[in-house]
Design a protein around this nucleic acid. Structure first.
Lengths: 199, 199
DNA sequence: CCTCCATGGCTAACTTTGTTAGCCAGACTC
DNA sequence: GAGTCTGGCTAACAAAGTTAGCCATGGAGG
């Protein structure tokens, strides 16, 4: 269990703004996350927000950090629980289930965090990699890990966007994917991820 | 090989507008696809576009139809080629390679077509399903098919968005996924997809 | 031939959005 | 007590999608 990287520091007021932004985003969707609407929630005027953040993208970057941190924490916890259970559980299945759960729990934050290019300069260093590490630990091998991560993201985002036909049994589709990837997992237990193809 | 559904009919002028929109989108990105910029390319003023489309979303829907149609055509062709080759090729690998190729060939159109909810009322009926059918034909079973599709979409969108670590060997990751899914493909060849969990 | 009207342009203008400029009140520091 | 930092404010702008309403062209029907 690696320790979580520290998020970019925020003043108390900035932290309040990010909290309000998160509620607004989650309750009313991405289009509703507007500078004026956010200011309204805080009882101030839109331009005042610029005393705390350089632009709207900076607020979104702070939200993305929270999304990454919570995702990473959930995945690390699920992996640890699986590995330390008696008998140990299947790590790939455990990570996949945790990933789906966190994506569906905060759909708009998930979308914000995972869609489009990441503003990496604005994110705490190491955070993105830390959040993805459980896939590497569960897969035991970097190529399988990236394939697993891609599958998981594809499943969540297509479900959130309503792209599956009505009535699809997605539990079964997730199980199918988990079995396909688990079958290719190298025996010999979990290894540290190699340096060459992480993420 | 099923026949492609007909796209929604367009007047000649509307077709010109969609063509211009496509060039604009592909050359300058999604943010550049603005009503005024599109009008500029056509040598007219922005409000004139509303004589041909009810709103910007209608132009985007026409673009999505083209994206779905081209994707579907490429996937059906790749699957047919694999199945009718001597000796027959591996259908899952063939469909995956074609999917990646078409996504990377038109990144902005791919993103537009596959991100966010689909405006299904504005799309030619049957088109979405037809485009996805090759996954079902290649997988031979609907749950594996949806898992395969999710994997493919996750891979393409994460690559387009630059989410993989620099230097990742994505060819190898694609191959890893192809092997994982191929191993679970039901023997006995390709079946028609069932009605219950298509897409 | 002349009228009618559908087609497809146009200008002007409005709303919403992100953003900047510049002012000001309170609080803390030297 | 003077100054400066903090965090509000109003006014205003540019870019976006969109609407209202005017006008030229051109083909159809009498």
């Amino acid at each position: 269990m690696s320790t979580e990287p520290e998020l970019s520091p925020l003043t108390p007021r900035a932290a309040e703004i990010v909290s309000a932004a998160r509620v607004l985003l989650e309750e009313e969707g991405r289009d509703a996350l507007t500078v004026r609407a956010l200011a309204d929630r805080l009882g101030i005027r839109a331009p005042s927000l610029y005393k705390h953040f350089s632009d709207k993208a900076a607020v979104e970057a702070a939200l993305m950090e929270r999304g990454l941190a919570e995702t990473g924490a959930a995945l690390h916890a699920a992996l640890d629980a699986a590995l330390h259970a008696t008998p140990p559980g299947e790590p790939i299945g455990a990570v996949l289930r945790a990933y789906r759960r966190i994506g569906l729990a905060h759909p708009n934050l998930y979308r914000l965090t995972t869609s489009g290019p990441l503003p990496r300069q604005r994110l705490a260093p190491g955070l993105e990699e830390w959040a993805g590490t459980p896939f590497f630990l569960a897969a035991g091998e970097p190529y399988l890990a990236q394939a697993l991560w891609s599958f998981a993201h594809g499943m969540v985002i297509l479900e959130l966007d309503g792209r599956y036909p009505e009535g699809s049994d997605l539990d079964r589709t997730w199980a199918e994917g988990a079995q396909a990837f688990t079958a290719r997992r190298p025996r010999g237990g979990v290894e540290r991820p190699g340096a060459e193809a992480r993420g």
